[in-house]
């Protein structure tokens, strides 16, 4: 009984991070801050959701289910490795191309 609750809490937490990332992409002012929201939010939320799914598999701890849980954790590991790297590569490419960073005074000029 306790395991579905843990898994549901983890998945709900992941969805919360996802919402944070989505709001960040929409609301942040420039490329760099948006990538920051997308990269961090996506990585953390995917990790917690996958952790929740892996925990859910352990309800019935037969070898087959444990194997599935391990595979899910492997996916989580690869996402932890690749998602920050792709964010880094995108931001570096943007920096090399000379995209301007947002500063506080930009907001004042606009409004």
């Amino acid at each position: 009984m306790i395991i579905p609750i843990i898994s549901a809490v983890l998945i709900a937490l992941g969805l919360l991070f996802f919402i944070g990332g989505a709001v960040g992409i929409l609301r942040f002012p420039d490329f760099y801050t948006r990538m920051h929201a997308a990269g961090k939010g996506d990585t953390m939320s995917m990790f917690t959701i996958l952790l929740g799914l892996a925990v859910y598999q352990l309800q019935d701890p037969t070898p087959a289910h444990i194997l599935v849980a391990l595979k899910i954790l492997l996916i989580a590991l690869f996402i932890m490795m690749t998602s920050p790297t792709s964010t880094h590569a995108l931001i570096k490419a943007g920096f090399m191309e000379g995209i301007k960073m947002w500063r506080r005074k930009d907001r004042k000029e606009k409004s």
Binding site: T82, T85, H88, A89
Partner: peptide, 8 residues
């Protein structure tokens, strides 16, 4: 080559 991308 970029160090982080390279290592990953």
């Amino acid at each position: 080559p970029d160090l982080i991308v390279e290592s990953t």
